[in-house]
């Protein structure tokens, strides 16, 4: 069996989540990858160990990974593959369902675990449940969640690169512009690191103690509902069941007791650090690393230690 992986990239580099998609696909069989865009990316793809072949589509219509031409290209190539795979990135989520429809296949989005060639595990209800589903489609189309699979190594392979013929462009869409966020503070929901404060921050003024640390980590700032209710920060900072649901690589909780509403909003973070003066605080039940102590001493010390 052979899988075709759409390898999406940004500014000439293969996205890390796409490398995870390669790992997922390799659990299913041989892996071919499709690179639409720059030849440098195709060369990088050829170096990924485990990739048997790189399909390179260089035509200008693929430059911005627009869904309409890219889905058409995938469909034109799909005949030889048992699975079409991509990362559940903005590109993968945009392109693959369209391609699936054209192939008359029901896609399987956000796969976190592969049971066998027919059977996949995916979160539903915002991660509150995990569904194991079996597909009866002859061809499987799936996107995989990057955090669930290790990224394939970037070096060590030497796959052949084959240039593919462009498919007919449906010509219904045009790229206009891209605006990458230049704000120093990333968006709470998409930040890699979140620094969050609770009632333990004591006041609106003292809440600012988190900012130098967030700057250092390139982190977004979040807050518990208690901190929002106490007026330390506006509501849009709230992480939790009634606020924003976040799942960063690193979540640092300062002075947050860990009410279940809050936990519901951040429990899927990869690594959780908790600092609280109460050793019994429920947040420690979910934290990978905890420090019992005064956050007003620990936060500046941590900021300093990161220098």
């Amino acid at each position: 069996m052979t899988a075709l992986v759409l390898l999406d990239h940004e500014e000439g580099r293969i996205r890390k989540s796409a490398l995870s998609a390669v790992t997922a696909a390799s659990q299913l069989g041989d892996v071919h990858v499709l690179v639409a865009g720059d030849v440098a990316v195709a060369r990088a793809a050829a170096a990924i160990p485990g990739v048997a072949k790189v399909l390179h589509a260089a035509d200008a219509q693929y430059a911005h990974e627009l869904a309409e031409p890219l889905a058409a290209l995938i469909v034109s190539l799909a005949g030889g593959y048992d699975q079409i795979v991509a990362a559940a990135s903005a590109v993968g989520k945009n392109v693959l369902p369209r391609a699936a429809a054209l192939l008359d296949v029901q896609p399987i989005p956000e796969v976190v675990s592969i049971v066998d060639a027919e059977t996949f595990v995916r979160p539903i209800y915002a991660g509150n449940a995990l569904a194991t589903v079996r597909s009866s489609d002859a061809k499987k189309v799936l996107t995989v969640r990057g955090s669930a699979f290790d990224a394939a190594p970037a070096e060590g392979g030497s796959a052949p690169i084959e240039t593919v013929v462009p498919a007919t462009n449906p010509n219904v869409s045009e790229f206009v512009a891209v605006h990458l966020s230049d704000s120093e503070r990333p968006e709470l929901e998409s930040a890699r690191v979140v620094v969050s404060g609770g009632r333990g921050l004591q006041s609106e003024e003292k809440f600012h103690v988190l900012e130098p640390l967030a700057d250092k980590l390139g982190a977004a700032i979040g807050a518990s509902r208690a901190a929002v209710d106490s007026g330390f920060v506006p509501n849009e900072f709230q992480v939790g069941q009634t606020g924003k649901i976040v799942a960063p690589e690193l979540y640092l909780a300062f002075g947050i007791s860990g009410a279940i509403q809050h936990l519901a909003g951040m429990k899927d973070s990869r690594v959780i650090v908790a600092v609280n003066k109460d050793p019994e605080a429920p947040i420690f039940q979910v934290a990978d690393y905890g420090i019992v102590g005064d956050l007003f001493e620990i936060v500046p010390a941590l900021t300093e230690a990161l220098n």
Partner: peptide, 17 residues
């Protein structure tokens, strides 16, 4: 259980603003 995990199960919510 404690109060907050209990309240969570009531699915109570009020528009914040």
């Amino acid at each position: 259980f404690d109060r907050l995990s209990s309240v969570f199960l009531s699915a109570t919510n009020h528009e914040e603003d």
